[in-house]
Design a protein around this nucleic acid. Structure first.
Length: 580
RNA sequence: GCGCCGGUAGCUCAGCCGGAUAGAGCAGUGGAUUUCUAAUCCGCCGGUCGCAGGUUCGAGUCCUGCCCGGCGUGCCA
């Protein structure tokens, strides 16, 4: 069920069905002709050749012969096996611009919440970002963080209730190491200032020391055991580390406009795993193998899923299942996305399979929204070795863009410049990440991150600022324009693209691919920019041209582009500055 | 070994579950500006879509085999 009704495309579909005597629900493929001069919407006739026992070019002729203009469709021409339809431009323009104007910030969004059969709003729980405490958010965290953030926004636009879930790594022996390191070091470190850096340095030094002093490992394990047993000292320290880390994360999230509905650590599940194990064991799904508690998955062609180690300690699969149970109890999700690196694909397949075998109500609703890794010099980046801090990347991007603004727009106040530099600098970083297909690995490259020309976030934001400037300078009231004055092909291409937005959002949501929206933004910006540039050749082609009526019509179109651009950028988590 | 992901222009990538002549950006090159913000636009150059078969009216897209790269492959997450 499409969330967005396009009466023009509907008219084309019914024209084809009528001409060929097809059932009312017969599928009619719509596409774009290779060349805009051929028409606006193309329909291939191949699919009907078999049932109609006729050659596609002849079928095309038949459709054209039966076609009568109407419903906003003005013309049908046969081009070999295709029928190309042309739309009534002013009718279409009126419809697109009115729709965008009426929907405003909600253009591209569905107009009503998406409901389940029981009347409740459809809910998606999106697990993203999910860093480990006592370490900085590093550049590579941007992937999960911004893909997840965009998916939350896209789902909301599509009528879902979206729960952003930040699943913190706050448990396990590494945290025992930190406790041990802390108690060995001078314990008067001030964690209020750059505490995460200090914690991380302690951790790294401790690991280094462990190499020469094996007794330290036992010490760390002992500390973790104390933590597990609820020892007051261990607990208090751990909570302090956690709070310091969270405060630090929050600063980065605030810069990027990222929010969560739930922040929950692995520690939260300590007493929620045993019920899961009992549930699975009661159904005879578990077995002891080599001293470990496992669920056999040989039928699924996978290695067994480990629930408990030989020493009885639980594993992350156990935690993930317990957390899924919790998430379902809490929000009754219809879909659950896990925006986690593709290196964990097998892990997700395994515990999804266990959930299925265990007969949980939410089986089959989880998806591993996998993404490729960030590499430096061809090598995978991990937070253990000298990863680049996300803070630093954001700082550098906004500094560099600030210099560009100072150069290109010298009249902007320093204060305003600072603000815009943040928006555009972050835009560069985030867009560089979201414009790629999720599963691709990406090479960390300063030059590419800091380029502001071509297919970049700043390019898109610039187009938006440009339109804002045009609208400001026009000094005209919007509305009531005579849209039949929009006659150029450039204007028409822009209008066609504007109408395509809701469909792109829908696809991006379905496939959990934000880069579909990013690609759309680029397309729209290029189309607008081509149109706009005509004004450099001929003043009569400017938006704010001498003829008042034409200017009003163009202004209406430009304004619709601005609105659509802003909405699309918002879905990606990018700001749309009015000037830059 | 097995599994998953990737291989498209010199480089970085799109290609909307099989549709017409495979598209962008960067780099190179030639143009456009007393700017409705040139962070732009237009032209040119550049592709045996890893290789070989197969399915189909039609394959970058689906199937099989192979090659290259990455990741994963029971007690880390």
């Amino acid at each position: 069920m499409s969330s967005f009704h396009d009466p023009f495309r509907a008219a084309i579909r019914s024209a084809v069905r009528g001409a060929l005597d097809l059932p009312a629900d017969a599928e009619v493929q719509l596409g774009a002709p290779p060349n805009p001069a051929m028409g606006d919407v193309a329909v291939p006739m191949f699919p009907y050749a078999r049932t109609l026992r006729n050659a596609p070019p002849r079928i095309a002729q038949a459709v054209v012969a039966a076609f009568e203009p109407g419903g906003g469709v003005s013309e049908a021409t046969a081009a070999g096996p295709y029928v190309n339809f042309r739309l009534d431009r002013s009718a279409f323009l009126a419809w697109v611009l009115e729709t965008i104007d009426a929907r405003g910030d909600a253009y591209g969004h569905v107009d009503a919440p998406l409901l389940r059969d029981d009347g409740e709003q459809r809910t998606v729980v999106i697990d993203f970002s999910s860093p480990n405490i006592s370490k900085h958010l590093a550049y590579h965290h941007i992937r999960s963080t911004m893909i997840g953030n965009a998916l939350c926004r896209i789902h909301r636009a599509l009528g879902w209730r979206a729960i952003g879930f930040n699943f913190l790594g706050d448990w396990g022996t590494t945290h025992g190491m930190l406790l041990a390191a802390w108690t060995r070091a001078d314990a008067d470190l001030d964690l209020d200032e750059d505490g995460v850096t200090k914690l991380n340095e302690m951790y790294v030094a401790f690991r280094e020391a462990m190499k020469t002093d094996p007794s330290l490992e036992g010490e760390a394990r002992a500390w973790f055991a104390r933590l597990e047993q609820g020892d007051a000292e261990a607990r208090a320290l751990w909570e302090r580390f956690r709070a310091v880390s969270l405060a630090e994360f929050e600063k980065v999230y605030a810069r990027l406009g990222v929010t969560f509905e739930a922040v929950c650590g692995e520690s939260f599940y300590e007493d929620r795993m045993e019920p899961v194990i009992e549930h699975l064991s009661a159904q005879g799904l578990t077995a002891i193998d080599d001293g470990a508690l496992v669920v056999d998955l040989s039928e699924q062609g996978m290695p067994p899923c480990l629930l408990k180690k030989q020493d009885g300690a639980t594993l992350y699969a156990t935690r993930d299942i317990a957390s899924a149970v919790h998430r379902h109890e809490e929000w009754q999700f219809d879909r659950a996305l896990y925006v986690v690196g593709k290196g964990q694909t097998l892990h997700f397949k395994q515990w999804f399979a266990v959930v299925e075998k265990g007969g949980y109500a939410f089986a089959g609703r989880m998806e591993h929204t996998a993404f490729g890794q960030i590499r430096m010099g061809g090598v995978k980046v991990s937070s253990r070795d000298g990863a680049v801090r996300l803070h630093d990347v954001l700082d550098r991007a906004s500094e560099e863009i600030g210099a560009v603004i100072a150069e290109k727009n010298p009249t902007m106040s320093a204060e305003r410049r600072h603000e815009v530099a943040q928006q555009v600098g972050y835009g560069a970083i985030v867009f560089a990440d979201l414009s790629r297909e999720r599963e691709r690995d990406v090479e960390f490259d300063w030059d590419r991150l800091l380029s502001f020309e071509g297919d970049t976030g700043p390019y898109c934001q610039y187009q938006h600022a440009r339109i804002a400037s045009i609208v400001r300078k026009a000094g005209r009231e919007l509305g009531g324009a005579d849209l039949s004055l929009l006659t150029t092909d450039d204007e028409w291409q822009v209008a066609l693209l504007l109408a395509a937005f809701p469909e792109r959002v829908e696809k991006a949501g379905k496939r959990a691919e934000p880069h579909w929206v990013a690609g759309y933004v680029l397309e729209l910006c290029r189309a607008f920019s081509s149109w706009y540039a005509q004004g450099s050749q001929d003043p009569a082609l400017k938006v704010n041209c001498a003829d008042d009526d034409t200017a009003r019509a163009r202004l209406a179109l430009a304004h619709a582009v601005q609105q659509t651009l802003r909405n699309a950028l918002d879905l990606l988590g990018l700001a749309a500055p009015e000037e830059m």
